[in-house]
Design a protein around this nucleic acid. Structure first.
Length: 200
DNA sequence: CAGTGGATCGTCT
DNA sequence: GACGATCCACTGG
């Protein structure tokens, strides 16, 4: 059993959202509720750089009931419903009023794989967490958890000692944000190179 | 394979 | 009233 060190507030309360998105690759996302412990290694992330990033929901300082969590404390979850079906999980970063966030796009399943299969109805292990909508479902994350702190014991991210070098990570343009004009071309998506759980 | 269309509903205009 | 930071099934080649 590896030693698990939960990421604390100082990890999330930083101004460089790209560095955070990159550093989250290789960390472990954990949910633990209803007696069900599930975890997976983060292998794909995307950074959303606040009010100047046209791809972000917070672009142009858009403050609504939904986006308000991004303007709140770092280390909170921002979860929203996409296409009426999928719950997408983000981590809020930077200090309050700076609405940075990192979307978690894919995991390599570690613990509780049977729970993940139950939640998703999916039997093929390589398909349960290989996309942002799918991993939220597998981990039991819904919009009810939007605004919930990642510093508690129910939903959090940890370092389990897994180490990688900078060349194990590849930066690409983000997925599904064509509406963002030239911001759609920014290399704000990070993947663990060669990992089979990276989305499509 | 690539391409396409349907699902499904909260959020914002 | 329109539209997604998606996913899957189904088509045709």
């Amino acid at each position: 059993m590896a030693i698990i060190q939960k990421l604390d507030g100082s990890f999330y309360n930083r101004s460089d959202v790209l560095a955070i998105a990159r550093e989250l690759i290789g960390k472990v996302l954990i949910t633990h509720f209803n007696g069900e412990y599930t975890s997976g290694r983060i292998v794909e992330t995307e950074a959303y750089a606040g009010i100047t990033d046209k791809a972000s929901h917070a672009w142009n300082n858009r403050r609504t009931d939904r986006t308000e969590v991004m303007f709140g404390a770092p280390g909170n979850a921002y979860v929203y419903l996409c296409y009426g079906i999928h719950h997408l999980f983000n981590v809020v970063t930077n200090k309050p009023d700076i609405p940075h966030a990192v979307l978690i796009r894919a995991l390599e399943p570690l613990d509780g794989i049977e729970f993940m299969k139950q939640r998703t109805g999916q039997v093929k292990e390589d398909r349960i967490t290989s996309g942002p909508g799918k991993l939220a479902k597998a981990m039991g994350i819904t919009t009810e958890l939007s605004g919930h702190s990642l510093l508690g014991d129910k939903l959090y991210i940890a370092d389990d000692g897994f180490r990688l070098s900078k060349k194990d990570i590849e930066a690409n343009k983000r997925i599904g944000v064509d509406y963002a004009g030239k911001d759609a071309l920014l290399p704000y998506r990070f993947i663990l190179k060669g990992n089979s759980f990276v989305s499509r």
